[in-house]
Design a protein around this nucleic acid. Structure first.
Length: 589
RNA sequence: GGCCCUGUAGCUCAAUUGGUUAGAGUACCGGACUGUCGAUCCGGUGGUUGCGGGUUCGAGUCCCGUCGGGGUCGCCA
């Protein structure tokens, strides 16, 4: 070993010991006669000092050290004088009086400093990810990510789950996200698809009798990126046989309680609260509400239908909805200009306007207040539970637009008005999603979750009469407004599976061709089963308190799905494409 | 594909209404300094203002195009 201790572990109890440390030069303070260096590794930092009297040659060499040089030092742990203790450092009570110095590797001048006060722009950080990964924030994220997966693996192991790997090279399936494809050399013209999730394979494992499965699985989806979406990401994937919905939710309730307790010291309720999809859509306008704060939506149908404001009354007449929310004590905080910005903001979600009222002692103050009688104003205030100083926002539109716009507005106002503790965790289940959604453009039904989702037992008959009303035995776990997990009870009956394929307009021949291996698995004695997948990257992001998943992934990709470090994706030699029988057909410049 | 933000020294930023030789802090280089911990003090090097056009007597600044990065809508079973 090139070191006897790490840079973070030395304490007063080590005083007098001769130690060998190795690490990176974090900071240097050269006083000519004495040189201080903060030596860094992932365990922490320690101050090493080079005194002229101790070893003049070593001291001279130390004066030439610069940021990010890698060195090994041998010296004695000494206590710092009382007035020289650095309370900011865990090792601040001691320092190492160095006799011997070995430069293991001299660093070129780094593109940015590890602890510079303003973070360099992300493009530079991604290009020089090796340097970036030395930053304590990223090191903490990687360490927390490791602890998280360890807790999860141990938890599922204790509960009898088997960790089984599924293929990365699979077959392309219809529906769902765009696949990443891998051309086959051995089968000219054929392609593998990288898995969007191990969905079908884990169902087959259930059929095969591996009744509790889990895997930390890499998944790939060739869709546009977001702050919380990467083209390759990691799921904690699990599946259980001989279970009902409540059994799956209970197992994960336990896992989450353990994770939050161990990593954050938080006691989370067991079981976690459960809400139906219909309820959260009505109360929050979103299927992933951030419940760290209230500000629920209010329906204003009766008042809107009766009032003199044409935009409201006509919307109701045409079958739309008028809904609103109350921003507490925001009347003074938002100028007309601020509100115009909010109006533009909800415009992104399809809202054609944003009505607002400032609440005062006598009623409502607004450019449109004149369209509302004193009774209407009182009714609005009462219905919405508003108080003087509050600011009311309303959207009149078709139902889906009022939901999307107000949900986005609610999230934005919640942040801007600091209505919640950013360190809090709010976890909840949303259950009973609709099974299907009608795609007007394609003129057909599409699966809301995926085509293997078991319908709610009370709604099986509706499949024939009113498919849009069928609820699924599916569930999402929502954490602080993020979809943190998703799953369902699966169909284990080939006849019902066939019925769903029919509804989705997947022909028997096509279903056989593309999912034949699943149907085949279901044919020879399939146990009732269900499971879910948790978004590992999102969980780590939330546990770290970060707002994008790139900061919890060692080597993430940019919004254009490029790896700035390695230069992927790249062109390849013609020899390679020839071997794969591929010819490029690039668009004209 | 749409909308928005963004690109100036190695890094973080500034530069008035379009107007002199594009500045500061930090890093880096040289010098001083034996108790610093964002060390301090003195001096110095460092610029294709992402790239390409255009308008103008004059462009970091205005216009058009383009490339990169970020946010978001669509998209993401």
């Amino acid at each position: 070993m090139l070191r006897s201790h790490t840079c973070g572990e030395l304490r007063k109890s080590h005083v007098g010991e001769r130690v060998t440390l190795a690490g990176w030069v974090d900071k240097y303070r050269d006083h000519a006669g004495i040189v201080f260096i903060d030596l860094r590794d992932r365990y922490g930092r320690a101050q090493i000092k080079f005194n002229l009297e101790d070893n003049s040659n070593t001291q001279k060499e130390a004066r030439g050290l610069r940021h990010e040089d890698v060195v090994q030092v041998i010296g004695e742990v000494v206590a710092r004088p009382d007035d020289m203790v650095n309370p900011k450092l865990a090792t601040g009570e001691i320092e190492i009086r160095v006799n011997e110095l070995k430069v293991l590797s001299k660093s070129a001048n780094p593109p940015f400093l590890i602890d510079q006060p303003d973070l360099p722009n992300e493009e530079l950080r991604l290009k020089h990810r090796v340097v970036d990964l030395r930053r304590p924030e990223l090191q903490n994220a990687m360490m927390l990510r490791h602890k998280f997966t360890k807790i999860v693996r141990d938890y599922f192991d204790r509960h009898g789950f088997l960790d089984i790997e599924t293929p990365i090279l699979g077959r392309s399936s219809p529906e769902g996200a765009r696949d990443y494809l891998v051309p086959s050399r051995v089968h000219p013209g054929c392609f593998y698809a990288l898995p969007q999730s191990p969905q079908i394979f884990k169902q087959l494992l259930m059929c095969a009798g591996y009744d509790r499965y889990m895997q930390i699985a890499r998944c790939f989806r060739d869709e546009d990126l977001r702050a919380d979406r990467q083209p390759e990401f990691t799921q904690i994937d699990l599946e259980m046989a001989f279970v009902e919905q409540n059994d799956v939710l209970s197992v994960v309730d336990g896992m989450i309680a353990e994770v939050l307790k161990t990593l954050k010291g938080i006691d989370s309720p067991v079981p976690l609260p459960r809400y139906t999809h219909a309820e959260v859509m009505e109360r929050f306008g979103s299927d992933k509400p951030d419940m760290r704060f209230g500000m629920e939506l209010t329906d204003l149908k009766e008042i809107a239908a009766d009032c003199g404001f044409g935009v409201f009354s006509k919307t109701i007449e045409n079958g739309g909805r008028v809904r609103g929310l109350v921003a507490p004590q925001a009347a003074e905080k938002y100028s007309r200009k601020n509100i115009d910005a909010l109006t533009a903001f909800v415009g992104d979600y399809g809202a054609k306007g944003l009505a607002f009222f400032r609440v005062n002692e006598s009623g409502l103050d607004s450019p449109i207040a004149k369209f509302f009688t004193e009774e209407h104003q009182k009714a609005i205030i009462e219905k919405m539970g508003a108080k003087p100083g509050d600011l009311i926002f309303c959207v009149a539109d078709k139902a889906s637009v009022t939901s999307a716009a107000l949900a986005a507005l609610r999230n934005r106002l919640g942040k801007e008005l600091e209505l919640f503790d950013p360190k809090a965790f709010s976890c909840l289940w949303v259950v009973e999603f609709p099974l299907l959604q009608f795609d007007a453009e394609a003129d057909r039904w599409v699966a809301e979750h995926h085509p293997f989702c078991y319908p709610h037992p009370d709604d099986i008959e509706l499949l024939k009469t009113d498919p849009g009303k069928v609820r699924a035995q599916s569930y999402d776990l929502v954490v602080n407004g993020y979809e943190a997990a998703s799953g369902s009870i699966r169909i284990h009956d080939p006849a019902i599976q066939q019925q769903i394929f029919d509804l989705l307009n997947i022909k028997a021949e096509e279903a056989e061709r593309r999912f034949g291996f699943l149907l085949e698995g279901l044919r020879y004695g399939a146990p009732p089963h269900g499971g879910m997948a948790l978004g590992l990257d999102r969980w780590v992001m939330l546990l770290c308190g970060y707002d994008n998943i790139r900061d919890v992934i060692a080597f993430p990709k940019t919004q254009k799905a490029a790896d700035l470090l390695s230069g992927a994706p790249s062109t390849v030699d013609e020899k390679q494409t020839k071997e794969l029988y591929l010819e490029l057909n690039l668009p004209e410049e």
